[in-house]
């Protein structure tokens, strides 16, 4: 956030017509926004239309981008800072991330799909980590219940899988 740099804002418009204004630099976390701006579009008052993403989801994404932009800018500001502080800041951001993503599954899916479409790698990572976290240490049937996955194997197919990799069943420690 160097002084004298003009503040450029970008408007993102959700599929249901809600507008979100944020710093262009924060919006650039999204590869899709980056591409749009690079070809000289999206800076106008009409903003950048974001298809398939509702206002509710987009608002979360914007919160994420703002937070991560601010954190990165702060880290840039004191590059002479000691290693210890950097680690502490990183840890703090991670804690914020985990708190942020502690959501109901429906919202989590929406954000994951949105982040994927917008090309925000960090947020995709975070959502995937959250899903994986829900699966960790659970048996297959527990995961199915948890994530609503329908077991669509016939008993013959199941027997075949079990035959192919029997150790899968016993080794979950």
């Amino acid at each position: 956030m160097a002084a004298g740099k003009p503040v450029v804002m970008v408007t993102l418009v959700s599929s249901d017509g809600q507008s979100f204004q944020l710093l262009e630099e924060a919006a650039l976390l999204s590869a899709m926004v980056r591409d749009t701006i690079q070809i000289g579009q999206g800076r106008g008052p009409a903003g950048i239309p974001i298809r398939n993403i509702t206002g509710q989801t987009l608002s979360m994404v914007v919160v994420y981008c703002n937070k991560h932009y601010t954190a990165a800018a702060a880290a840039d500001g004191d590059d002479a800072a000691d290693e210890e502080k950097k680690v502490a800041n990183k840890k703090q951001l991670r804690e914020w991330d985990e708190q942020f993503i502690n959501l109901e599954q429906d919202k989590l899916y929406d954000i994951l799909v949105a982040a994927n479409n917008l090309g925000i790698d960090g947020l995709v990572d975070l959502c995937c980590w959250r899903f994986a976290d829900m699966m960790k240490g659970k048996s297959a049937s527990e995961i199915r219940v948890k994530l609503g996955i329908r077991d669509d194997f016939t008993s013959e197919q199941r027997a075949q899988i079990e035959k192919d990799s029997p150790w899968v069943w016993s080794r979950t420690t």
């Binding site: 109901e104 429906d106 989590l108 899903f131 948890k146 994530l147 609503g148 996955i149 329908r150």
Partner: peptide, 12 residues
């Protein structure tokens, strides 16, 4: 865990 079991199989 606040994310309660899911009714619909969206993950797949």
């Amino acid at each position: 865990d606040p994310s309660h079991p899911c009714e619909v199989d969206r993950i797949s």
